[in-house]
Structure formats: C-alpha cells, structure tokens
Design a protein around this nucleic acid. Structure first.
Length: 556
DNA sequence: AAGCCTTTGAAGTCT
DNA sequence: AGACTTCAAAGGCTT
C-alpha cells in the first residue's frame, strides 16, 4: 500500500485523527494569532503539509507569523465589544443558544482571510465567555486569520456541550478560517484554504443568523473601518452562503433551541427541523474531487445533469492514480480535522433526518418486489451454498461499494474500465443494444470480466447477475483496495489515464467515446433482479429505492 | 415545489 | 464485527 503523503503513514482513522488533532491543538496553544498571512501561503502550506506528510506542528508554528502587538490589542478590543454585544442580546432575550449561530464572519468582507467551512455552530458558552485567557488558537492551516477575528475563540464555542472539549485544553473553537468562499450578495469571495475550491462558492451561508451572529456582526462592523457594510441577512431573507450550514428560514426562538410549539404536529416539526440550518458533514475525498472536477466536466462535456456528471466523475475517480487520489484523501482528512475542531461535539447523527425525505430502509425496499414474486426469468440464479464463499471481512466495504455501484450504474459497468471491458467482451459491451447484458449478465461474463479491475463481490455471495463471487483477497485483485489515506475506503486499481470526457468508452456514458448524453434507458429485462442483500446494499444510496430495472423502466 | 438521480466516502445505527 | 443507513454536492429531471 503506497504511502501517499510521503512519510508518516498517517492513519486516517477517526480516533487517530482526533488524537492528532488534539496534538495539533496543544501545539496551537503555544501559538498565537497570525496576522494576514497570504492565503496562498496557507494553501501552499497546506499542500506542502500534505505532500511532506504531516510536518510537525512545531514547524508549522515556526512558520507562523508572530503576533502583532497592535493586532493583539485590537483583537482584545474587538473581543470585548463582541462580548458586550452578545450580552446585550442575551439580556434582551434575543439571544438563545443555538447550534447554528456563530458564523457572522462570512458577512464581513474585510475579513476575507477569515473564513471557515464549518464555523462553530454554537454561541457562547458561559465558560467560554469567561475564557478570555484561553490562548488564541488557530488551525494549523489557518495561518492567515484575520486579526480581527482570531481573537475570540470563545465567540465560537459551540453551545452544545462538547464532551471531548475543554476550553482549558486550548482546543480552538475559533473559526479556523477554512476560507470557504462566501458567495452571493457582494460578499467577498473567500477562498478555501485547502485550495480546491478557488473561485467557487463552496458552502452557501444559510440565511438565518442567530442573534449572536447578528451581534457579532454588529460588533464587528462597528470595528471594521472602511466602506463595507456587513451584510446580515435576516433569517427570512435569501440564503447566505455558509460552508457547513444549510439554508434555513427557521426562526430562532428565545431561550433555547428551536422548539416548535407544542401544538405543532410532528410532521410540521420535522419540516421545521429539516429547514434548520445545520452543520454539514465534511466533504469526503470524492466529494472534494467532484467539486474540483465538476466544472471541468461540465465544460468539457457540456453536460449539466449532475447524475450524469457524477457518473463521469465516479469513473474518473477510479482512473486516478493512488497518488492523485491521495491528494483528495488528504484534503478530506484535513477537512474532517478542521470540522472536528470547529464542532467538537458535532456528530453526523445530528444531520440525520435533515434530508427532506429519508431514503427508504432496507426493509422498505425489500417490500418492493419480492424475488419470489418475480417471474422466473427475472429471478436471480441461485448458487449452491457450498459454492458461495463466506463473507470475507475484506469484502465488506468493497462489496458494499460495488454492490452499490454495480447496481446503481445504469449499465452496471461503472467499475469496468474500457480496457477491461474491451478485453472482456469487446463485442458485447453495453454499447450494443443487441447484446446489452452479455458482458455482465451472461454466465460466461464473470470469467471474462474478472480482471484485476473487475470483481463482483457482494459479500462473497453472488452478484446480482448470478455469477459466483470470490473473496477478493483470494481470487482477484480488488478493484479497489483500502486507500492508505482513507479510513475505510478503498481505492481503485491501476490508473487509467483520464482525458477529456474520458470515461471508459464502454461506459454507458462514454459509449460514443465522448461525453454523450446519458445512456438510453435499460430495458427492464436486461438487469437481473436483485437479491435482498443486493438491494439493501444498493438501496443504501437510494439507487434502488425502487428496483433498478423498474426504476430505469420508468424512464422509458 | 419537492424529491429523484448519481457518484464515493465517512460515520452513524442496527443486528 | 459486520451489515446497513444516512448524508455530503450538484443541477437537470420527474412527479
């Protein structure tokens, strides 16, 4: 397994990350606020950090500018003003703890160097408010924090108790100025420090600033000289870009979190909850890659439909070298670190149900069309138990992913490279409507397609197409092996150089070797029915919220 | 207008 | 422990 970052073999395990993060925080305690280091330096330092593999925090600290006394005094002044404003708000009953406050800085163009994808979601905690002595801490990557903003870590302390966090630890709750661009409304574009989103508005700020945020902004605006006027958009107004907070129109009720009236029915409450701004999940490597590459794909392929683009990107992702992917894994790792710093108490669970409509569960999807109810020709061929390998631990994630991928790919060849498919069944690729299922559905296909890039591993069972699946570790080289920079992800095999709209030509998307319109809908009979296991695996992403064949058929 | 589609990865819950 | 579920982005499409 290649060491992608050249050295430390940094494990991306969450726990490890947290440990590393704490270490960083400890290091950061010793640091002081930097003045406006050029953002590019931050980006480059970040990249360098990645490339040089986790250069020590000390060295990072060394690279940081020393605090400017003037800035320090200014910082203290601003901190005081900010706190006063907050207290006024609170005293007026306008302030309420909310997980969604604390990102007013996005509204301050002058603070262009201060930005964060995940500004702390909490308002001031009592302890935090009294923690002026808490060392100003910065994210190691945020060497450029605006002096006006880096003073007040307490201002961004999550309201929610953060089990693992103690103000005394010095862990920063300061918005780490991840510099997620702020978009609309004339607000300055702020570049993400991680550098993959230049020129993009990565996270739209949600409308709906908390009183704390408003107070903060008011306080800050009074301090920031110049002609700009901080744009505070009331909750009822249009969305304000924020990295990690989704738009909302929800009103903040005094005295606590948004508690709907008792008369409010659950459905309404759920809707309200869904509308709440919330801290979003940090983007994973692929998401980061998508963000970066999507515009290119759109430009190259003249395709705007995200589903199509995502398919292309998915294939391109697989064609990346491990080194290329490592870049994104590393960025994602940093993203998670930053996120964990900004929101120590945040959990992905917090966002459960934030989607407007929950995807159906396994049991729900299983209710769709029981296999036994399917016509014989649609039933999945059975494999004798003795021929079915036991589920292998190595298969789990891969199988899951592949089941998902295969089943969600319209033509189920998402992981088959052009070469492989050409070698496997050049005449039977799905390009040919006459033999649309030859490569994948015929019993002979597995052997032909069982290249190092091709495996059908549904937990060591059988693919939806009936072929027996072999444990990856025993038979074929996994199409994707765990990426060293990924916690529980797997990466593609040998790279296939990508070019413009270069997904495999055998791909449904690339049938014409160009970025072509989405493939024609599959004929329903082309895709074998799915076992419940397959369905569940695939349905986890909603791809099979209705049976694949049926879903595609609907488009006919 | 709301949700779907589509991708991979992370992290949560469930069994 | 492993399986399963949800969400993250995005924008055209469908209902």
């Amino acid at each position: 397994m290649p060491q992608l970052t050249g050295g430390s073999g940094d494990d991306l395990g969450a726990s490890d990350e947290l440990i590393a993060f704490k270490d960083e925080g400890e290091q950061e305690e010793k640091r002081n606020v930097s003045s406006g280091t050029d953002l590019d330096d931050v980006k480059s330092s970040l990249v360098n950090e990645s490339e040089t593999n986790n250069s020590s925090s000390d060295s990072e600290a060394d690279r940081r500018p020393k605090p400017d006394p003037d800035l320090e005094s200014s910082r203290a002044r601003h901190s005081q003003l900010f706190e006063e404003a907050l207290r006024r708000r609170q005293d007026a009953g306008l302030f309420q703890p909310s997980p969604y406050v604390g990102y007013p800085f996005f509204m301050i163009p002058d603070l262009g160097n201060f930005c964060s994808p995940y500004l702390a979601n909490g308002a001031l905690t009592p302890s935090a408010r009294t923690s002026n002595n808490v060392p100003v801490v910065q994210h190691p990557h945020m060497t450029h924090l605006h002096p006006l903003l880096s003073y007040s870590p307490e201002a961004f302390s999550p309201q929610r108790a953060s089990p693992g966090f103690s103000p005394d630890t010095g862990l920063s709750r300061t918005p780490h100025a991840a510099c997620y661009p702020v978009s609309p409304g004339g607000v300055a574009q702020i570049t993400h420090p991680l550098g993959w989103l230049q020129g993009q508005s990565m996270y739209p700020l949600a409308g709906g600033f908390s009183p704390a945020a408003l107070a903060m902004n008011a306080s800050m605006s009074s301090l920031v000289s110049g002609s700009f006027s901080p744009r505070l958009v009331p909750t009822t107004q249009s969305s304000i870009p924020h990295p990690a907070i989704v738009p909302t129109g929800v009103k903040q009720e005094p005295g606590g979190s948004n508690q709907p009236g008792k008369s409010m029915v659950d459905g309404q409450q759920e809707k309200e909850d869904a509308k709440k701004p919330h801290i979003k999940k940090p983007l994973n490597a692929f998401m980061l890659y998508m963000r970066e590459e999507r515009p290119k794909v759109v430009a190259q392929c003249k395709v705007k439909e995200s589903a199509t683009i995502n398919q292309i990107l998915g294939q391109r992702w697989h064609s990346l070298t491990k080194e290329e992917q490592a870049k994104y894994y590393e960025l994602a790792r940093k993203e998670r670190l930053l996120h964990s710093k900004l929101y120590p108490g945040w959990s992905a669970r917090d966002n459960y149900g934030k989607k407007k409509k929950r995807k159906r569960t396994k049991s729900e999807t299983q209710l769709e069309v029981p296999e036994e109810d399917l016509p014989p020709q649609l039933k999945r061929p059975r494999v004798p138990p003795e021929e079915t390998p036991h589920t292998h631990s190595l298969l789990t994630q891969t199988a899951h992913t592949h089941a998902r991928s295969h089943l969600t790919q319209p033509h189920s060849i998402s992981h088959l490279t052009h070469t492989h498919l050409s070698q496997a069944s050049p005449a039977s690729s799905l390009d040919s409507p006459a033999t649309p299922t030859t490569a994948l559905a015929s019993p002979a296909a597995p052997a032909a397609t069982h290249t190092e890039h091709t495996h059908y591993s549904y937990g060591g069972h059988t693919s939806p197409y009936g072929e027996q699946l072999q444990p990856l570790s025993l038979t074929t080289k996994p199409h994707r092996t765990p990426h060293p920079l990924s916690r529980n992800t797997v990466t593609p095999g040998p790279s296939t150089p990508s070019s413009s709209c270069d997904t495999p030509t055998s791909s449904p998307l690339m049938a014409s070797s160009r970025c072509s319109p989405p493939p024609p809908p599959l004929q329903p009979f082309l895709v074998p029915p799915l076992s419940s296991a397959h369905q569940s695996a695939a349905s986890s992403h909603g791809a099979l919220t209705q049976p694949f064949s049926l879903r595609r058929t609907n488009q006919l």
